[in-house]
Write a protein that binds this DNA or RNA. Structure first.
Length: 260
DNA sequence: ATGGTTGAACCTCAA
């Protein structure tokens, strides 16, 4: 059973790559971020034709998240509690009905934060606090849980190609790292890091400055898994080759494999 | 050198 997360940076532009990848790798569940389209514009028919059920939480121009699943989806939830003024589409959750039981999954697009002096930075920290509070409830269900997405956080220096160069960046700031550890401390593990304790691999490379060609990447996309899911974890990898194609997203998919 | 690239929508913003 493969569960993957991928920030597509526009589902419209990336649809041919997504369809080809779904046909080739056949992941059972895919968590998408940065759709950059409203629900009505989501290419549901093309994806459903490949056998996927959908939970889409779209938004015009920015953000937008979705769940694709080969199994039926129940209990679909869109958005996080804690701030009625936050209208950004950054969270969608559902229960995947596998024959062996149920797996709760969520696709999350944590705000980038732009710069520590920007008002987007405190918004990022507040969002992470709301995510923490919601996950605290989810872990109490004692079920297989996978919260995947673009966290816009490199958890440790090994997750940054050149930590000195990125010092001060909102992607590796102490406060956001602390916010992520606070979520992990609820009992969630980073699937890729569990499988590869010492590998300096990345999931995002900046379009600017030929980041990918220079191998200047960061690992900011994660699959956080509950102990019940970690017990079944078999492998995890990053689809780096998908960052090398023509018209690539700036993110590569991160995949975790489970033996149910 | 305070740049550079991409996407969506608009003539700029967000990443």
């Amino acid at each position: 059973m493969k569960i993957a997360t991928w920030n597509v940076n526009s589902i419209k532009v990336r649809l041919p790559q997504l369809l080809e990848w779904l046909r080739r790798d056949q992941p059972e569940v895919v968590l998408l971020q940065e759709l950059k389209c409203v629900d009505e514009a989501f290419p549901a028919i093309e994806i459903e034709e490949l056998g996927y059920n959908l939970a889409v939480h779209g938004q015009k121009t920015y953000n937008g998240v979705a769940i694709l699943s080969r199994y039926r989806l129940d209990d679909i939830r869109k958005g996080l509690d804690g701030d009625d003024t936050d209208l950004q589409a950054r969270y969608v959750e559902a229960v995947v009905n596998v024959p062996q039981g149920a797996i709760r999954v969520a696709s999350v697009y944590v705000p980038n934060g732009q710069d520590v002096t920007s008002d987007k930075f405190p918004y990022k920290l507040r969002f992470l606090g709301r995510l923490h509070d919601h996950i605290r409830t989810l872990v109490s269900y004692d079920e297989m849980l996978v919260v995947g997405g673009d966290y816009n956080i490199a958890p440790a220096d090994i997750d940054v190609h050149h930590p000195k160069k990125w010092d001060g960046s909102v992607l590796m700031h102490d406060n956001v790292r602390r916010a992520l550890r606070r979520i992990a401390n609820l009992g969630l593990m980073d699937a890729f890091r569990v499988c590869h304790p010492d590998s300096p691999e990345f999931s995002w490379w900046d379009y600017r400055g030929s980041g990918f060609e220079r191998e200047e990447g960061l690992r900011i996309d994660h699959l956080l898994i509950s102990p019940q899911a970690a017990d079944k974890l078999k492998a995890s990898h990053i689809e780096k080759a998908m960052r090398a194609v023509e018209k690539a997203s700036d993110h590569a998919p991160v995949v975790a494999e489970f033996t149910l």
